[in-house]
């Protein structure tokens, strides 16, 4: 019984990944796609290049800010959904996840219409006399974070919702009956118990955000370079599969390391809470 899932994993996940990693260690001649032999040159070039290290930093910054924005929007929404009557709850959950049904490209163009210099937001602010010239809300990291957080918000809400729905209402009632104000009930009872869901949602959104491509390309206006974009340039623009694979390998290792670190910190925090 163990054999089939293992074979499935090896075929679907491990084999393509191993192929990618292997390709990252090859170094084809200039103008060629495939190369023989094994070389560390691609990784050395990436890890000693100011451009690619900065690109890695930008990618992580966008991932982190997108996760924090999605958390800031998703946590109150999940808490509200939990308390809403059943019918309203279903409606809000549907509205929350409905954007997933729409193409990311369409959503990105929607944001362009809203946020561009002549877009709805800037036009409204200028007509109200609140600003003299348009705010730069798009074709920079701000636009990418807004778009990415919006795209990934449903994942955050669903992750947190799964966690908060299991919290026993009696605990909140007990805290309230002992004199705790509503905000104190949320901060001292609900949030600590929702922490696994919050952590899962944050990690999930972070991972999806650092790997996203379409939203950064469209809302970054080709001006914000992230590691997936840099890898795509190598595959699609210069046909340098080896270097593109190495970039993907670096991103993969960096994301895994960050996730493991986050997991360790979270476990310590949960252990400390349990001890209280």
């Amino acid at each position: 019984m163990l054999g089939l899932p293992t074979a499935y994993f090896l075929l679907i996940v491990a084999y393509p990944l191993a192929n990618l990693v292997r390709m990252g260690f090859s170094r084809p001649e200039r103008g060629r796609v495939f190369g023989e032999g094994v070389s560390l040159a691609n990784y050395v070039e990436i890890l000693t290049s100011e451009l690619y290290l900065e690109t890695l930093l930008v990618t992580f910054r966008i991932g982190l800010l997108s996760a924090l924005c999605a958390l800031a929007l998703g946590l109150p929404l999940a808490l509200y959904i939990r308390r809403a009557p059943p019918v309203l709850r279903s409606v809000i959950v549907f509205i929350t996840i409905a954007p997933i049904l729409i193409s990311i490209v369409v959503r990105a163009y929607g944001w362009m219409v809203l946020l561009s210099n002549r877009g709805v937001v800037n036009s409204a602010l200028m007509n109200l006399g609140m600003i003299d010239r348009p705010l730069r809300l798009i074709f920079n990291e701000t636009g990418v974070v807004i778009g990415t957080a919006h795209v990934l918000l449903p994942f955050m809400v669903l992750a947190i919702l799964g966690s908060v729905q299991t919290i026993d209402r009696a605990l909140e009632d007990a805290a309230a009956s002992l004199g705790a104000r509503p905000w104190r009930v949320v901060f001292d009872v609900v949030l600590p118990l929702a922490l696994p869901g919050i952590a899962a949602g944050t990690v999930l959104v972070f991972i999806l955000a650092v790997g996203s491509f379409v939203t950064p390309v469209l809302l970054g206006g080709q001006l914000v370079l992230t590691l997936p974009m840099a890898a795509m340039q190598q595959f699609n623009s210069t046909f340098n599969w080896a270097f593109g694979s190495a970039l993907v390998g670096v991103l993969l290792v960096a994301v895994m390391a960050t996730t493991l670190l986050f997991d360790r910190v979270l476990k310590r925090r949960l252990a400390r809470l349990a001890a209280r």
Binding site: A230, Q234, T238
Partner: peptide, 25 residues
């Protein structure tokens, strides 16, 4: 295209490092 295909890897690094960041959008 022979020139472009041969050298575009190096050009790409320069484009990303030197040009892209100068564009304000």
């Amino acid at each position: 295209w022979a020139l472009i295909n041969r050298d575009e890897g190096a050009w790409l690094n320069r484009w990303n490092a030197e040009v892209r960041r100068l564009v304000r959008g």
